[in-house]
Design a protein around this nucleic acid. Structure first.
Lengths: 121, 121
DNA sequence: CCCTTATTCAACCCAACGGTTGACAAAGTC
DNA sequence: GACTTTGTCAACCGTTGGGTTGAATAAGGG
């Protein structure tokens, strides 16, 4: 799992980390402040942040002893691009399929008719 | 990790599964056909499909011995919504921050000035 | 200098993941 | 009815993930 996209998806697969991201959209935060709401050790939170950082979702600076955590919005685009690309394709095909099915109605029984039972129709 | 959003993100964190999704946007496919390009056992692919199915990304029907796999485009919206929501917020805050920083220039030194080093200047 | 605050590192534990192989089930074909 | 195709189930195995605790580091503050 070396590629960034995998790391980003994996990072967001955890509800705690998603919540952290959500809270970081409001304001930068220290590790301690971030940890407060959760019922886990500070070290666990630190680990979560490492995961988010390695995914490029977050960056950390230094401010005295504190390590303020900052959300990097750019990475979201990476996901959005991937998702949007295939979502569009899937929806396109959805329409095309309907057309095909409609066309098939005019003939006998098709040889490659897949998708007998599904969500649609 | 019971919630769907977690399952969806986790499912897409695997490159093989993302590739399967990508290929399924082109056409429904049988397990065998889906497995062909990958250098793993059929059982492994079957497991991957189970993960995708439990995430709601895919549905399976029956066609003789075959179990055609079909991509469910709707779930993508779930992710898109989550992502877009926080991306927008993050970007908004990005602008607001600039305003705040500009405002601070007119005063002395701030007490809560976080984000000393970051991506943005 | 010592002490407190803020955070990370290291070692460990257990559950989950991705892979394997072997057996089984379901449906069509001969 | 036996055989083939298509796929899943079950048991197992090594690795990773999220959690813990305890010690270490970094930077102020008294």
């Amino acid at each position: 799992m070396t590629d960034q996209l995998s790391r980003v998806f994996a990072a967001l697969a955890d509800p705690t980390r998603r919540d952290m991201v959500a809270r970081l959209t409001v304001a930068d935060s220290t590790v301690n402040d971030l940890a407060a709401p959760y019922d886990v050790s500070l070290q666990a939170v630190s680990k979560h942040l490492k995961v988010l950082e390695e995914a490029g979702l977050v960056s950390r600076s230094r401010e005295a002893q504190r390590r303020p955590v900052h959300l990097e919005a750019e990475v979201f685009d990476l996901m959005t691009k991937w998702i949007e690309r295939y979502r569009r394709q899937a929806e396109e095909r959805f329409s095309r399929l309907d057309a095909v099915l409609a066309a098939m109605d005019e003939e006998g029984n098709p040889t490659t008719g897949i998708r007998t039972e599904g969500t649609a129709s």
